[in-house]
Write a protein that binds this DNA or RNA. Structure first.
Length: 136
DNA sequence: GCCAACGTTGGC
DNA sequence: GCCAACGTTGGC
C-alpha cells in the first residue's frame, strides 16, 4: 500500500502545470526539519497531492514518488533529502483551502493546523475526500 | 499590505 | 543555554 503525502509549492516558483510539462522533477530545497522528516519517510510509489500556495491556495493535482529520498543536491546540509516525482493527473476541479477548512473532516490535517509546513502526510480518508471533492 | 507563527542568528 | 531581534512563510 502506498502512503499519501502533500507537497506545497508557490506556483510562480514551480507549478503543477510545469511538472506536467516536465513529466518529472526533483523536489528539493525543503529546509524545515519537520517537513524533512516527512520527506525522509517517502517511498517510491507513494502518492502525492500538489498544493499551490499564494493566490491559488488549492490542491491542484496528483503526482507519484519515483525515487526514494536521496541527499538534496541543492543543500549544504547532508541530512537534507530530495525526492523525484512525476505528474499523474490534474484534478478536474482544484480543491480550495477554504473548502478544506470548512469541512470538519480535516480538523486534524496539518494543511490547516500547521500553516507553514511544506511537506506532510495525508491520511487515506483525507486523500479520498480531497480527490472526491476534486472530481475524481 | 498586514500579521501570526516559526525558524535562525548572535549577543550575553 | 537563553532569549531578543530579525527574516521568512503563507493566510487573510
Amino acid at each position: 500500500m502506498p502512503s499519501y503525502w502533500l507537497l506545497k509549492t508557490e506556483p510562480d516558483d514551480y507549478s503543477f502545470e510545469q511538472l506536467v510539462s516536465d513529466r518529472r522533477t526533483i523536489w528539493d530545497g525543503v529546509a524545515n526539519n519537520l517537513a524533512q522528516q516527512h520527506m525522509r519517510a517517502m517511498q517510491k510509489g507513494d502518492r502525492v497531492l500538489i498544493y499551490h500556495t499564494g493566490k491559488e491556495r488549492s490542491v491542484v493535482g496528483i503526482a507519484e514518488v519515483t525515487r526514494k529520498p536521496f541527499p538534496d543536491p541543492t543543500s549544504e546540509n547532508p541530512k537534507h533529502v530530495a525526492v523525484e516525482i512525476k505528474s499523474i493527473r490534474k484534478l478536474p476541479y482544484p480543491v480550495k483551502l477554504a473548502d478544506i477548512k470548512n469541512n470538519r473532516t480535516f480538523d486534524d490535517f496539518e494543511l490547516v493546523t500547521i500553516t507553514r509546513l511544506s511537506a506532510m502526510p495525508v491520511k487515506p480518508l483525507y486523500w479520498k475526500t480531497i480527490t472526491g471533492m476534486g472530481g475524481l
